[in-house]
Design a protein around this nucleic acid. Sequence first.
DNA 1: CTGAAAGCGCTTACAG
DNA 2: CTGAAAGCGCTTACAG
Lengths: 345, 345
Amino acid sequence: MRDKATSFDIAHRAGVSQSTVSRALRNSPLVNLETREKVQAIAAELNYKVDKNASNLRRQQSGTLALLLFEDPTSDDSLINPFFLSMLGSITKASAKAGYDLLVSFQNLNDDWHAEYEDSNKADGLILLGYGDYVDYRNKLSKLEEQKTHFVRWGAHDVDHPGISIGSNNVQGGFDITQHMINLGRKKFAFIGGADKHCPEFLDRYIGFCNALKNSGLPHDSSLQIEAISTEDSGYQATSALLAEGKSIDALVCASDLIAMGAMRALREHKLTIPEQVAIAGYDNIPISSFANPALTTVQQNTKLAGEILVDSLIKLINGQEVPQTLMPVDLVVRQSCGIAFSSL
Amino acid sequence: MRDKATSFDIAHRAGVSQSTVSRALRNSPLVNLETREKVQAIAAELNYKVDKNASNLRRQQSGTLALLLFEDPTSDDSLINPFFLSMLGSITKASAKAGYDLLVSFQNLNDDWHAEYEDSNKADGLILLGYGDYVDYRNKLSKLEEQKTHFVRWGAHDVDHPGISIGSNNVQGGFDITQHMINLGRKKFAFIGGADKHCPEFLDRYIGFCNALKNSGLPHDSSLQIEAISTEDSGYQATSALLAEGKSIDALVCASDLIAMGAMRALREHKLTIPEQVAIAGYDNIPISSFANPALTTVQQNTKLAGEILVDSLIKLINGQEVPQTLMPVDLVVRQSCGIAFSSL
DNA sequence: CTGAAAGCGCTTACAG
DNA sequence: CTGAAAGCGCTTACAG
């Protein structure tokens, strides 16, 4: 086995008490500078590390944050939504920067996740990411709140939803991308993506979409909103169904890039040219979108900032501070899939 | 604050001693079935969870694995190599399945990572992923081994490298993809990617490439191996340089999909058609590759299996068992970027 | 500025 | 099958 040094070993060598070692290592101003330096030198030499379990047990905290990733249950086993992956990267970095360890876990809907982490003192707080159907999870969220678990979640703010949420301004994003296409002369729009309480992010994007059409005096017929979940396949199915009906459209606003990828496939199958005959836009700016043909115009969420805000907010919550709901601005990423203005063609 | 139940609370309610509670909760066969059930019922009712810090401290283990991700220092801050992201997903799932928590950390080259985790009892063992330049890290790996830290790493097996490595059979992959292109009638090959001790994965792919050419009696000139690291941009630069020299080629084997994406951009800029004039292949089968135009023929590494083997091997190591080096088979993913046989054109 | 001592909440050898 | 007790390695109030 490994022969780990303890604070007693250091105390012995330094000729001081174990309490002094502990203080010196935590940089307590109480301890004499000379003593402190001697202790730290010996600790470094022995490759000593404070035992986290003992320290955490005594201090009744863990210095650890838990990231709970809820996968889209519909997605295939090995494929994780690239957007969440990008969030994961930024959250990992942000917690490291804040001096916290990060426990990562993929969750099923049935897991008893809402108590596990904080109750067992494994983590001081929870970050919830992509947890699927909002309606299903309301109860679990309430339970978290009841138990006074510290948590933040990524997603749309919802008045009757417990807890702090950090999310993008999806209404704005939906509006901007639609307005962009209107500016390019498009008139016959459809929206591909679910738009109800079950997925408020998509709903918000749809609301932005409707606002833009209304603003410009364009008709918006609810029959042109086609249900789809965030997969390539679902986007393909929804768009195929739309086209099969023979509806005439010249612009497709998709609730996510994955949906847009599928929609592009359906358009191609129907021999419709992009962007000449049908302009198309996505949402998320996942890596794939810049390599699509034509490259996909989309909306970029700031995942780097999002990760930082999520982590900072959670730490504030843990420290008993007040934290606001946050709605982050989004950026339009203009590529080729919406073409250029009709007038200049 | 939160009012957490302890084993003493349960003992009190159940009318037994705290030791019995502890035993009952760990399903010790020593304790009477009736008592065990009563204790467990009360624990469930109180939403009791064993305090991990206390438990770990006492048992001198953590039930946690640490995943150390070393980013390519050249890559942009927010972009993580999609291949590693996919590995991360499978490792996360595999450790959950094995009953271990997973601590995830992104590391810099200068971090004192080689001691931190296991010495502080935060993790029982380490999984090292994508840790950059092999030559630079040899020393750190040796130090890990010296300290008897338990670790496994993803990558090429290297005789003078300490520790257990799990990796794909890259020689095989390089051979298969090259052979595929030879079968389709290609004759003038180039390999884009670094091929030296600093990146043994790429070197192995290059060795497979050379073997295939030799087997078929095709010339292989080392001037047709162009250095590139695994980024789109580097692939673009390397291919542009190759084309600028005016070399005549009809097949490009790239050491990674990211490199291939850049190479395709360079080919397009030089008005070379893919696959008619130049066939191209990548390695990794990252999500982007199926959406490239034309869709990229590539080599698929089994990340799901890799994650499981990595986790299982590490756990065996922790339990003092012997673990073999593992070389996993790879699969050819044939799409459009290598075209079809010349004879049938 | 320093030391002796209590205690965080468990697990497990020891005794019955 | 059960209980009393020791101890994992720290941190920190208390006393000096």
